[in-house]
Amino acid sequence: MRSGRRRLSFAWIATLPFFAYTILFLFLPAASVLIGAFQNDKSGYSLSNIRTLFHHPYIDAYEGSIKLSLVTAAIGGIAGLFIAYAALREGTPKWIRSTLTTFSGVAANFGGIPLAFAFIASLGPLGVLTLFFKNQLHFDITAHGFSLFSMTGIGLAYMYFQLPLMILVIAPAIDGVRKEWREASANLGASQFQFWRYVGIPVLMPSILGAIILLFGNAFAAYATAYGINSGANLITIFIGAYYSGNVLNNPHLAQAMAFGMFVVLAVMMIVYIPLQRRAARWAK
């Protein structure tokens, strides 16, 4: 026993690099954003940068980011739910399920610059689909108000990773809706609709909301995809990026304040997410 103790006192050193690493590359940089956001040029403390965030154009960029994230999370979440259910429900061949998981895994990981270009090649001004609509179907999408460089266009591209993320996250929850529950409600005379209205949806609700919140954060944090499509988009991540790649670095503390603002939005999101996650876990197998 004593010798075991002695070994223990040496071996815990194995965990030291990990904690040292997270402190050096996660906590201290995060803390420097936190502190920097509340500093001014003369390295004194002030709220001026935080206050600036509430004014044009910064507040509009937050609004743009939040709106885009909400819309793509809601649409992606609901459509993803239906696609996942279509693959998992009875009557659908088993191979579809594993195929869908594989393809979702690939699509969810296909983001950023290449994804942006895939949409430029499809729906951009010279995109294959744009030209196909124009020449073959005599329908000019740009003349009808569509632009890939608008928020709608960026949202369409975001959907490419939002849908598969929803499918991957919600599939285990759908699996948790047990066959016995459906049989029991059918025995009591419930219709398919009544089962979903009173049993299925209420049980799945925390999982669905939790997944949609995850999708929100996913879109809110995205930078490369939007940048690749429209480097002037009215999104907060684009604003922060412009501060570093451009030549407007006159006030780095403003960039830190913008980053801090993003962090606050995502922290609020996590506070909503965690209790939902707990509730959803109640029905997990």
């Binding site: 201290l28 940089p29 954003v33 930078y223 991540t237 830190q256 801090f260 993003m262 995502l266």
Partner: peptide
């Protein structure tokens, strides 16, 4: 819990912090 933090601190926020700190 620590493994969830990189989800709350997106890459763009992380790089702002890393650039300042280093």
């Amino acid at each position: 819990f620590l493994a969830l933090i990189p989800f709350v601190v997106p890459p763009i926020v992380m790089v702002v912090g890393l650039l300042k700190f280093y």
